[in-house]
Amino acid sequence: MEERKEMITADKLAYNYIKYDEEGREKEKIRAVDGVSFEVEKGDFVAILGHNGSGKSTLAKHINALLTPSEGTLWVNGMDTSDENNLWDVRQSAGMVFQNPDNQIIGTIVEEDVGFGPENMGVPTKEIWERVEESLKAVNMLKYRHHSPNKLSGGQKQRVAIAGVVAMHPKCIVLDEPTAMLDPNGRKEVIRAVRALNQVEDITVILITHYMEEVIYANKVLVMDDGKVVMQGTPREIFSQVETLKSYRLDVPQATLLAWELKKAGLDLPDGILTREELVEALCRLY
């Protein structure tokens, strides 16, 4: 049997949050995801951008079957997430890191918390400890292994939450704004860890973020607007369209923004500059 290439396939996926009145009648319907189709291949690093309320988290919750489509279909590793028989396998395949670490940390000691997932999966005890150690190391939290997670600051908790998912060795990790609460160094470390998981372990990564600098490492970007996917492409393709992105309430990396401003002011710079190094190089050629 040939191994399939796609990790995630969405076909006209839609999701409605429905509210009912006292008599149980449908009162209101919010169409949070509005008929999206896309494909994520194994080994991809996909970034999802979009304004507040555009449907990113709702979409993400479909990938580990916390929500199932109101319309359309979502396949994860070939499994239809609407089929209840697939629930366990879908959740095994796709790990999730949420926006707020408070809601996902359960253990009373950091290492217990990280070991909880593998333990639940029936991983042998000795291997659990190896996984705990390697995951905590990956997010630079090993020295807090005996601390209580409740007593960590926001950024420290977030790294523990990521370690907890990494320890389950999923095929795919969905991270919903994992760096929102981290300091610049913590952001760098987490993104570095996520990239290593993607490149070394070949784990498929889906990263939702409002930090444009984090997107440049992705090989594919999806832009959402009001529940729809309105742009798809490589970071360079997406970030070349500064004005379109701004119209979707988004932004571009700082180096791209500075290049764009300089270009508007008359400097002959190329489109699609993404990094500081690229900007410096382009300026040196002109100087």
């Binding site: 979009g50 304004h51 507040n52 555009s54 926006q99 926001g154 704004e177 929102a180 609460m181 409002h210 444009m212 701004k246 309430r249 988004l250 932004d251």
Partner: peptide, 11 residues
């Protein structure tokens, strides 16, 4: 941390 989680325009 008022802007953590806000979209760029919102920030």
């Amino acid at each position: 941390e008022p802007t953590a989680g806000l979209d760029p325009r919102g920030r």
